[in-house]
Write a protein that binds this DNA or RNA. Structure first.
Ligand SMILES: [Mn+2]
Ligand SMILES: [Mn+2]
Ligand SMILES: [Zn+2]
Ligand SMILES: [Zn+2]
Lengths: 141, 141
DNA sequence: ATAATAAAATTAATAATTATCATAAAAATT
DNA sequence: AATTTTTATGATAATTATTAATTTTATTAT
């Protein structure tokens, strides 16, 4: 899965005539190995720890490439912080977030997914994408 | 409805020992009269047109008060732009957005709302809030 | 190996928001 | 009504996150 993602990235680079560099390789490897829902800052910290000569701009640029190539997807859990998630770990899903401890559960309900398409159709829309975040308090809090 | 909101704002001010000022009154009035899903910038433009001596900081501060008092609610339609909507115009709802023309329809489906609560419960969560945005292409586009 | 091309790092620029502070206005007190 | 106290305001400065510009360096093709 990580290998698949890496291949996809390499293919994207060649398709766009972009070069394969040490920096890009390192950043992608770290991203694919990391926890889900990573912020730019979290990623940059790890990258710097591995190679402190890498500039912050390169991390921004590579994160953009990851998003363009479909390997990463941005999510926002209502706190205005952009997080990046690896789309190769799991397919489409929504999120259930604890507003006390920040616990984050990935959910997927086919009934809801179907209803969403139905509602869109009812208004003459062709549904392309959606986001849904449920905020609550978990049983440990 | 606008009057009700204005009262709520005044009550909030007294409860918090905040003063009733010309600027706050003007900004709230304009906000309550405006279109839904207003950005800070759009609001500031209108405010400046009415009274060009009002500083940008005051608009930011008042928008914060509106949010704290529950009269305004921030929404993000996936473009990282913060918009403020008047909660007194309508109750809870979700959004259906055209990614071509930006058309925005407010939707509410009791079946989905029920399923959301059920899913949360299944994971031991007490649901407090949620956001759902459907992105698609409208029939005019 | 050389040349051509693109990427990197560094630095500067930009934009959005928030902090500081001196002045002004509102509310409370006399 | 004048005075005092409290809080708000507007101007400016500071901060933060992100992007742009530029010079140097690395990668790829010849
Ligand atoms: Mn996720
Ligand atoms: Mn709305
Ligand atoms: Zn929790
Ligand atoms: Zn449209």
């Amino acid at each position: 899965m990580t290998i698949e993602a890496k291949e996809r990235f390499d293919q994207y680079l060649s398709k766009k005539n972009l070069k394969k560099t040490h920096q890009r390789g390192l950043i992608v490897d770290i991203f694919l190995k990391s926890a889900k829902h990573l912020t730019y800052e979290e990623l940059y910290e790890v990258v710097k720890a591995k190679d402190k000569t890498i500039g912050l701009t390169t991390v921004y640029r590579t994160l953009k490439l990851l998003t363009e190539s479909g390997i990463a997807k941005t999510v926002d859990f209502g706190d205005r912080v952009i997080r990046y998630e690896n789309t190769f770990c799991s397919g489409h899903h929504d999120h259930l977030i604890c507003i006390r401890c920040g616990k984050n559960i990935e959910i997927l309900d086919e009934n809801i997914e179907k209803l969403q398409r139905e509602i869109a159709n009812r208004y003459g829309f062709t549904l392309k994408d959606h986001t849904m975040s449920l905020y609550g308090i978990c049983n440990e809090c």
